[in-house]
Design a protein around this nucleic acid. Structure first.
Lengths: 358, 358
DNA sequence: CTGTCAATATGAAACGTTTCATCGTGAGAA
DNA sequence: TTCTCACGATGAAACGTTTCATATTGACAG
């Protein structure tokens, strides 16, 4: 490929006092600036760094020169010298998952506002791929790493100097930013119980993840509490387990709904909005109307949650906050806390109502 | 921050023939390898580069040493020397849009298989932000740039040496990988007409984008053709215009559906699945049943399309192919074609049927 | 034995920064 | 006048590579 020339960088001709730099066809370097401004390279670097120890007139002259020849510092040179980059690694299981897409969007927004760029890596929920991805990412000396781990044990290569914070799922030895999942599950159960539902179903995520376990336990904890206060009224919840995706929600929903009416849950909570949307579809296929025949509460509050029919009542994760804290943790200078727990909140929309027989 | 040490890099102690390198606590460099293997730095570089001009025994010795001390080439040094990185810039309007998320996933998969990493930038459909993003991206000397442009004029800073290919939307002066949008629109109209629909609606994307115009024109072209072959039978289509997102679909859908039954379309095609899903929700809200009262065909075939209720008949974009071609264009050595047009295909699912009165 | 040539390995330069020890300079103190 | 200091600017080293012009072989032909 022929070398492509930046047309911005054209000297106005050699009329200046300073001697002309020879390299007129490549990107101007700090040397060109120095030469043209008649100062040393170090001085230019110092004005770039806004270092105080440079006199006013020289500063102005250098700045003018920079402007004139359109100099832009070469990031690679700087990074090599400083032995770190201004790149933030973001490792997610699946960028296609609306929750992670949202996370990526917020992280990217905040990062680019601070002058950082985001390197995206997908792990496809595969620990092997995750290891590989993290290793090559770390090889790029990122300023920080934001990680949604799939495996919950860290490996050798991960003992590293780059600040890492973990999002959504914990990884021993690293800071975690996540919603209080237990409370989220609790909230869902509470809402359903207070509407009068007694036969409850719960679609959980994979039991291998702590997130799933916590949400489910929170859900069950509320039921236990209810059992204390309402002896005799309680019916055991029906628990099923699957992945966080649409398809799981649909399949498990079918299973839950294909029972005789008398034992079929009147309300189901799920561990993700995607599951809830899958469940919605299962209900539709089976002629079960939502919310009149079945109440549903999701988890996450992805954008789609308010667009499905009916709109989904769900437990919102404050994803912007999560992104902010994660980035702050990774870039901030203060020591990392071990855990940043955020409070989920119940968003009431149209997928829940009182049970039919009340 | 205290300097963090990689525990992998611990010499087994100084029993070797070669003199011990002093720098035992930092990441090993090519110099350490050279010293320990008793060869020159250049030689190590050559074995790394799989250069033929290195003898078998030396090659083995160097490789053993690399293995032994856990040497990993420093990407920054290499990049600085070569004046380019192995990073691919991916600039999308909105990573939250399932179509772009899917694109990102595929690009990332393919890129990382080739040893490249993906730098993600969001433009939020804002030309100003796009310019900014592209500029900083370009400053990182990416191996290539995959761009879904929002503004359709290129700016000064974009005249660049890095290979750029444009996806989905054209940008003058750059290669474009996209589906044949015109044909997509054509296919949608064709399907609806052949089912017997005569009162058709079309929800298009913003008319400022070529993509929207092409899809719409394709749709209209099929209608024109129909008019030729079926004189007298034809009723003018109802066109409305909005954004590609859910909300637009919902709003415009409401508008289209709130007409008296006699003039209300019996079928509506949209320019995106998101619009179609929004439309689905509008129909639900207004008691219009799909597909019995209204047939809908979307565009894109995002994963969600097969999960909504009813499942969405849509025009599929072969997104994996798009990603492959884009990446190939950016990384490949051969000259770029000006345009790679892919064929969309109609995916029949449950959102279309014959009109009620037939 | 000498000259040539191919095959390998070497050393140094270069990529564009930042930083640090050093050097000039002029002002104020002795 | 000379010494000391603070201030500002300089020059060179260093970051970790790759590459290219040399240097060192050994073999083989003349």
């Amino acid at each position: 490929m022929p070398y492509c020339v930046d047309p911005l960088y054209e000297f106005d001709s050699g009329t200046d006092l300073e001697k002309e730099t020879g390299a007129s066809r490549l990107n101007p370097t700090i040397k060109d600036v120095a030469q043209r401004a008649g100062v040393s390279v170090g001085t230019v670097s110092r004005v770039l760094a806004k270092n105080k120890t440079v006199s006013e007139d020289i500063r102005l002259r250098v700045e003018a020169t920079i402007e004139a020849i359109g100099y832009r510092p070469n990031i690679l040179g700087r990074s090599l010298r400083l032995n770190k980059t201004d790149i933030i690694g973001l490792v997610v299981p699946d960028i296609t998952n609306p929750f992670f897409a949202e996370l990526a969007k917020h992280v990217e927004m905040l990062a680019s506002a601070e002058g950082y760029s985001v390197l995206l890596a997908n792990t496809h929920d595969d620990p092997k791929a995750e290891k590989q991805q993290i290793e090559t990412l770390l090889g790029r000396l990122p300023a920080g790493l934001i990680l949604v781990p799939v495996s919950n044990s860290l490996f050798d290569g991960m003992v590293t100097g780059t600040r890492t914070v973990t999002v959504d799922r914990p990884l021993s030895g690293h800071a975690l930013v996540a919603v209080d999942n237990r409370r989220g599950g609790y909230l869902a159960a509470d809402h359903l119980l207070s509407l009068g539902h007694r036969r409850l179903g719960y679609i959980s995520g994979p039991s291998s993840t702590d997130v799933s376990a916590e949400r489910r336990d929170g859900f069950l904890a509320r039921l236990d509490a209810f059992r204390e206060t309402h002896p005799g009224e309680y019916v055991a919840p029906q628990l099923v387990e699957g992945h966080f995706d649409y398809r799981s929600g649909e399949e498990l929903g079918k299973r839950l709904l294909s029972q005789p009416l008398v034992s079929r849950p009147t309300a189901i909570a799920t561990a993700s909005d995607q599951q809830a949307i899958g469940l919605l579809r299962a209900a539709g296929d089976m002629g079960v109307r939502v919310p009149s025949d079945l109440s549903i509460v999701g988890f996450d509050d992805i954008p789609l949650a308010s667009l499905v029919l009916p709109r989904l009542t769900t437990i919102r994760q404050p994803i912007d906050e999560i992104a902010r804290l994660a980035l702050e943790g990774v870039l901030g200078s203060h020591a990392l806390q071990e855990e940043y727990k955020l409070q989920p909140v119940l968003i009431e929309r149209g997928s829940c109502t009182k049970p039919a027989d009340l």
